[in-house]
């Protein structure tokens, strides 16, 4: 659809005075077309992502019947990162929700109808949520929600950690080596004594020295 300039092409921007207005407009139109198609691609990808991660989104589960307090999902499946979001239906008259775990300890307290749990180690976790009314009384209690946490194995994680370390080390090596060779190249002409050019070179490449 479009072509790029040749990589080695030297341009003469001074010859640009006689430009063709309509062609320019066409060019802009083409650019807009490109952007349009790009947007289409982006949107479809965005939607794919949204669908893929739909479990993580969810705004307002207010569709449930008002007096019954229950978790949206009672079986949360297996979390491999040790975090998940509990979500429950809203109850009329509730000013506060309190999530308790199997040890009856408070895992969340707040006005939202969801709670983010994280940092859990391997095991299975049961939760109940209570709705608290204005007078501080518990007006409803839900059934149980069960979540399981099973972390990724340590061996594959450490393998990926090691691969990452190797890749980063490779990148740093290339940059440092390239840098060193740049510096060595600097020494060469000076050692050889490019008499006339030296001052010119320095002024051309090192205005940063006035720092």
């Amino acid at each position: 659809m479009w072509k790029f300039g040749q990589p080695s092409g030297r341009r003469n921007r001074r010859g640009a005075a006689e430009r063709n207005g309509s062609a320019m407009r066409r060019a802009v139109a083409a650019a807009l077309c490109f952007l349009g198609s790009f947007l289409g691609m982006l949107c479809s990808l965005g939607f794919a992502t949204a669908v893929f991660s739909s479990s993580a989104i969810a705004d307002g589960p207010e569709t449930a019947s008002p007096d019954k307090l229950s978790f949206v999902e009672t079986e949360l499946g297996e979390s491999r990162e040790g975090y998940f979001t509990l979500e429950w239906s809203a109850v009329d008259g509730a000013v506060l929700y309190r999530v308790r775990d199997d040890a009856n300890e408070i895992a969340y307290e707040g006005v939202a109808t969801k709670s983010f749990q994280s940092g859990l180690s391997d095991g299975s976790y049961r939760y109940r949520v209570e709705a608290i009314g204005e007078d501080g009384q518990t007006i409803a209690t839900s059934g149980e929600a069960i979540a399981t946490v099973k972390h990724w194995g340590l061996a594959p994680s450490l393998t990926l950690f090691a691969i990452g370390a190797v890749v980063v080390a490779g990148i740093v090596f290339v940059i440092l080596r390239g840098r060193t060779i740049e510096l060595q190249q600097l020494q060469l002409p000076q050692a050889a004594g490019h008499s006339g050019d030296v001052s010119k070179l320095e002024s051309a490449v090192d205005p940063g020295r006035n720092e």
């Binding site: 510096l183 490449v205 020295r209």
Partner: peptide
């Protein structure tokens, strides 16, 4: 390759 530079 590297280009020549003033260092620093």
């Amino acid at each position: 390759v590297g280009d020549i530079r003033g260092g620093g």
